[in-house]
């Protein structure tokens, strides 16, 4: 369960955003809607512990996020959240398999090649195991970054604008991918988007 209460954030240019309180129950997906520049990304950063809010608290599964400091926060995030950014941000000098092993290592989990293979198979890119990121297409890169996000079986999969640059058909495919991965890994989805096409698939929306 996630609860946001009394969150405000003041930008360096002194503009302040007040975010509505929010509760996301377990086993519910949630869509964060808002136009470009409305503060979606800021909210996601606050939600993932990357950006300390000016006031208010973030509670995820009974953990007050900003009570955690430094390395503890990094570790907590690695264990509980799977984050997919707009860009894939894979490490170019490492292969697909190594990129995933890094994710297991830094979350202090045992390296588990079977798990890596399992996730890549679910995403239908296991044949790219030993390829370098530059050898992959955009779509494949996104799949690998989804694979990395779900690898450690996080409670929440958080994605920022995963479909905005795709055509209708591909947007649908990617969304299905997220839903399938969430189901397969028993995780809840939180997707931030301004893409109205996504809206129909989610009962819960949070409008900024």
């Amino acid at each position: 369960m996630i609860t946001l209460s009394g969150i405000t954030y003041t930008y360096p240019n002194t503009k302040t955003i007040h975010f509505k309180d929010l509760t996301i129950k377990s086993d519910e997906h949630c869509l964060v809607l808002g136009n470009s520049g409305s503060g979606k990304t800021t909210l996601l950063n606050i939600l993932t512990g990357l950006l300390k809010p000016s006031s208010g608290t973030v509670n995820i599964n009974q953990q007050d996020l900003y009570q955690l400091k430094g390395n503890d926060l990094d570790q907590w995030r690695a264990r509980h959240l799977g984050i997919v950014f707009q860009k894939s941000y894979l490490i170019p000098s490492l292969t697909v398999s190594e990129n995933l092993r890094v994710a297991q290592k830094f979350a202090k989990l045992k390296e588990d090649k079977n798990r890596i293979l399992e996730v890549l198979e679910q995403l239908q890119i296991s044949d790219r195991l030993n390829h370098y990121p530059k050898q992959l297409s955009m779509g494949q890169l996104q799949r690998v970054s989804i694979a990395r996000a779900v690898l450690n079986k996080p409670k929440y999969i958080i994605a920022d604008e995963p479909t905005s640059s795709l055509d209708d058909e591909n947007a649908k495919a990617v969304l299905d991918l997220f839903l399938a991965q969430a189901a397969a890994n028993q995780a809840d989805l939180i997707i931030a988007t301004h893409d109205k096409r996504v809206k129909d698939c989610f009962p819960n929306t949070y409008q900024i």
């Binding site: 993932t48 990094d74 690695a78 941000y89 894979l90």
Partner: peptide
């Protein structure tokens, strides 16, 4: 810097 920042997201500490 993007790769290194992502390593932090994956759980790497500043010290690492």
């Amino acid at each position: 810097k993007y790769d290194l920042a992502v390593l932090r997201i994956l759980g790497a500490s500043k010290q690492q």
